[in-house]
Amino acid sequence: MLAPWTTLLGYSPALLNGLWLTASMSVLAFAFAFALGVAGALGRRSRIAPLRWAGATYVETIRNTPVLLQLFMIYFALPEFGIRLGAFEAGAAALAINAGAYLTEIIRAGLQAVPRGQLEAARSIGLGPGDTFRSVVFPQALRYVYPPVVSQFIQVILGSSLVSQIALKEITNAAQTINSQTLLTMHVFAIALVLYLLLSNVTAVLADVVGRNAFKPPLVPRRKGGAPSMRDQLLAMVRGG
C-alpha cells in the first residue's frame, strides 16, 4: 500500500523543481500582467482615441481566444520573426499577456468606481493629474478590486499548468514524466492536484492576511463569524469573469 508513495518520494526533486518553476513563473508573469493591466486600463480611459482602440483590441482579442493558443503562438510562431523564447520565458510572457487583459478590465472597473468627488477634491487642493492618480485615485481603485486581482493571480498559477505543453518541467509536466516512467497514474496526478490546491489555498490565505493588515484602513474588518472569509470570496471568484 505504501510502496507507490515511497517510489514517488524518490521523485521529489523533480516535483519540487516543478513547484519552484510553477511558483516563480507565476509570480514573474503576474508582476508583468499587473503592469499591463494598469497600462491597459489607463489606455482604455485615455482621451486619445487610438489608445482607447488599442486597449479595447488587446482585451477583446486576448479574452476571446484560448490561452493555450496564445502560448503556442509565442513559442512556435514568434521565432519566425526572429524572437526565440525559451519555454520559461514564453510561458511567463503568455501568462502575463493573458492575465493582463483580464486585469485591464478589473482595474478599469476599479478606477471607474472611484467617485468623481475625489477628483474634484484633489483639484481643489491643487494636486496635479499625476499626483491625483498616484495618491488619490489609484490606491482607492486598488482597494475596490483587491479580491478580483488576487483571484487573477490564482488564475495565473493554475494557468501555468499549460506551459507543460511546451516541455517546461513545471508541476504538470513533471507529473506527466513521472507517470510515463512509473505508471503510478492516480498517485502522481493526485500529488499534482494537491500541489496546486496548496498553491491556490496558500495564496488565498496570504492574500486574506495581507488584506487585513497591509491596508490602512483594513480592507476587510476583523471577521465576525458568518461573513465569508476572503479565501472563500477569492476562490469563489476564480474564473468568475
Binding site: L158, S161, I171, T172, N179, L183, M186, L193, Y196, L197
Partner: peptide
C-alpha cells in the same frame, strides 16, 4: 467544489484520461 476550482483543468483532464486507462 474546492478540488475542481482550486486545481487546473489540464491536470484534471490528464488525471481522468490516464487514470481511466490505469483503472
Amino acid at each position: 467544489l474546492e478540488i475542481f476550482r482550486g486545481s487546473p483543468l489540464l491536470v484534471q483532464m490528464l488525471f481522468i484520461y490516464f487514470g481511466a486507462a490505469y483503472l
